[in-house]
Design a protein around this nucleic acid. Structure first.
Length: 196
DNA sequence: GAGAAGATCTCCT
DNA sequence: GGAGATCTTCTCA
């Protein structure tokens, strides 16, 4: 499996399609302590003015302006005073879109992840990264990474074969969004223990 | 400049 | 199954 970053053309497409195609790709986080990697197993698509649940629904603000820029950029935000969430921006400049990475299956650097996110005593291995706040904590993703280019090798990027056969995909409505939109824009790999 | 809501998680009953 | 924790960003004055 290649560890070459996915090119910008991968991201600057329809957001729904990118959300599906990101399943099975490898998220790579490099820190002073070492490298951590994980397979993406769950995503959600967020769009622009037609999507009430999206930060970009009311147009570009200081926070959401990254969603209107080029694709392939890390969009990180802070919610509930506790959790960071990691997104990859999509669509061409001028069109809003982002894909929330909700869960990964840890592959490498698991020791570091456990240090970043100590687990309660009797928890299962899957609890390490099976949720957006959890994986951000485990991989030490903070607001400092907001705006990171995911198409070049750096502190944070996504790799994988662009044309690799996608795993079996299941679909459902998005989780935790209140504003209307029961749109089926959550995607996850079937039969995987690490989905939230 | 104040007030409110939020793409969550953990622990408790 | 439900409340509480805690801070960034947005909205409106």
């Amino acid at each position: 499996m290649g560890h070459r970053p996915l090119p910008r053309t991968f991201y600057e497409r329809n957001t729904i399609q990118v959300a599906k195609d990101l399943l099975g790709k490898i998220l790579i986080r490099r820190t002073a302590e070492g490298q951590m990697t994980g397979r993406i197993v769950e995503t959600e698509a967020y769009r622009g003015s037609d999507d009430p649940a999206s930060h970009a629904y009311r147009g570009a603000t200081q926070r959401s302006r990254l969603m209107f820029g080029r694709g392939g950029i890390a969009y990180v935000y802070y919610v509930y005073g506790f959790h960071h969430c990691l997104n990859a921006t999509t669509e061409s400049p001028g069109t809003a879109g982002a894909v929330l990475i909700r869960a990964i299956e840890p592959l490498g650097g698991i020791k570091n992840m456990r240090l970043n996110r100590p687990l309660p005593r009797h928890s299962r291995a899957e609890d390490l990264t099976n949720g957006p706040g959890k994986l951000a904590k485990a991989m030490n993703v903070t607001l400092k990474l907001n705006g990171t280019d995911l198409t070049t090798i750096g502190a944070l990027y996504i790799a994988g074969r662009e044309s690799a056969t996608p795993p079996p995909i299941s679909t459902s409505t998005r989780v935790g969004v209140k504003k209307g939109s029961r749109r089926p824009w959550r995607f996850f790999t079937r039969d995987n223990e690490f989905v939230s």
